[in-house]
């Protein structure tokens, strides 16, 4: 493991799926690119474990939310790319609104009066 810097956040159960789907909304990507993208976009706060990434990708594939295809990477190597399927798009919308509701609820509970204090 690449160290456990205190600034990094453990992924919540079930959120990895949402992150993968959201990442692929921007366009097809291979596993490593997905992990890198999540890490960079979250300003290195979110660390995707390889050990859970690939099982998650294959699980989403089995559910028909993402579809794999083989293509050459930007460096000219054969890589397994994933793209979002229409079914996955629907799933993303559903997960996303669930997540929005959840995070709003969390925020309301954690910051009952004002947010300046934080």
């Amino acid at each position: 493991m690449r160290g456990n810097a205190p600034s990094r956040i453990e992924l919540l159960q079930g959120t990895l799926d949402l992150l993968i789907l959201r990442t692929l909304l921007a366009g097809p990507a291979h596993g490593h690119a997905i992990a890198t993208h999540i890490q960079r976009t979250s300003e290195d706060l979110l660390q995707v474990e390889t050990g859970s990434l690939y099982p998650a990708l294959h699980r989403l594939e089995a559910k028909g939310w993402i579809a794999p295809f083989w293509e050459l990477s930007e460096k000219g190597k054969r890589a397994r790319f994933y793209r979002l399927t229409p079914l996955g798009r629907k799933q993303l919308a559903a997960e996303r609104s669930k997540w929005d509701a959840f995070s709003r609820a969390m925020a309301l509970v954690l910051n009952p009066i004002d947010q300046e204090g934080l």
């Binding site: 596993g31 490593h32 397994r80």
Partner: peptide
Amino acid sequence: ELHEELQFHLEEE
């Protein structure tokens, strides 16, 4: 394929 996929990941990393 799975093996190749992981191999690719290692190289990228």
